[in-house]
Design a protein around this nucleic acid. Sequence first.
DNA 1: GTCCAGGGTCGAG
DNA 2: CTCGACCATGGA
Length: 269
Amino acid sequence: MKKFPVESFSLERTVESGQMFMYEKLDSDHYRIFSHGEYFEVKQEENVLKFRGESKEFIQRYFNLTTDYNTYYEKALDELSTDPLLKKAVEEYKGLRITRQEVRECIIGFICSSASNISKIKKNLKLISKHFGEKEGSIYKFPELGGIDCQETLKKCKTGYRAEYIYETEKRLTHDFLTRLKSMSYKKAFKELQKLPGVGPKVADCVCLFALDHKKAFPVDTWVKRAVEKHYFNSRTKSLKEIKEFAEREFGEYAGLAQQFLFCRERSE
DNA sequence: GTCCAGGGTCGAG
DNA sequence: CTCGACCATGGA
């Protein structure tokens, strides 16, 4: 395996943080990750990341390990640590990064995520790859654009009521639409994504954060909602709008990262 | 059996 | 705009 040095990065914390679903654990700190219809292997040994199957540049981009992002990350952790709760979360999950996933795969993954759980989402995506994807040895790759073309087969992937959403969304995901999406501002992309069936504010924010590099995106799921209400609003119920406004105020351009730390911490309680 | 999980849609008020 | 019923599935 080839290798390169990494700083302030934990492969395990990042992969298993609930932001990505297409991976297999091969060993401790050793994963096979599916992205862009392909797959690669990564293994962390302290401050060294070993890899094979994709280029160093690809992997640095996927895990946001570029020098520019390293600077942003260190600064973000400093800033966020002025908040007592985030300070604890950062200490507990240091090295947790925001990934940069392929847009379509991210959309479909998070459509599967509605009212589900991580192990089931992983299972859904694995089944989708098995039924629609290309086989390479014993490994099934994620289907290419337009490849998910049968609603009945989607139900065999245990996606339930989400089968129709995935099927209809896939039809609208053209190469042109995906390209335009990448050039939009956060607000525009957030709105545009919600026109897709099965995509509401939470899924749209996940795609903005985990695929489109919009650092201000603040996905609010049951865990994050619970965490924010408990720690910042004395356990009083708040609307989605109020929670997002709070995040913008409190965390600003680091909101996305803050959200991921909050999510992981709350879920481990 | 009941409740909940990285929610969204639809209709009613 | 906010609220609740409903959606399919699996694990606790």
